[in-house]
């Protein structure tokens, strides 16, 4: 079980839990504003951009090459950017905080 905290761009805090799936799916299931996930999670639409809280970045890990290529063209890209459709839910990311970019 992983508990994830989303903080939206209008400062709403949503805490959600799941055992499996992707963080994007979890966000959609919990109506997190700013996570659209238009492409269903194949790293094509970049509508699930988050900034991982600085202290949690090691837990979540860096993006792969294809995801990084997408991210570096995004507005508000920084060194903690991830597309959350590419973050799998597991115990390893329990307790992380994600700031929704859009």
């Amino acid at each position: 079980m992983a508990k994830i905290t989303f903080i939206t761009s209008d400062n709403e805090t949503i805490v959600a839990e799941a055992n499996s799936g992707s963080v994007m799916e979890l966000a959609k299931d919990n109506n997190v504003n700013g996570i659209d996930g238009d492409c269903g999670g194949v790293c094509s639409c970049a509508t699930c951009h988050v900034h991982v809280a600085a202290g949690d970045f090691d837990k979540v890990g860096a993006p792969g090459e294809i995801e990084a290529d997408m991210l570096e063209l995004e507005d508000n890209y920084n060194e903690h950017s991830r597309l959350c459709c590419q973050i799998d839910i597991s115990d390893a990311i329990d307790g992380v905080t994600l700031h929704v970019v859009n």
Partner: peptide, 8 residues
């Protein structure tokens, strides 16, 4: 699974 296409 990894499909960063530009079809749209």
């Amino acid at each position: 699974k990894m499909n960063p296409h530009v079809g749209f």
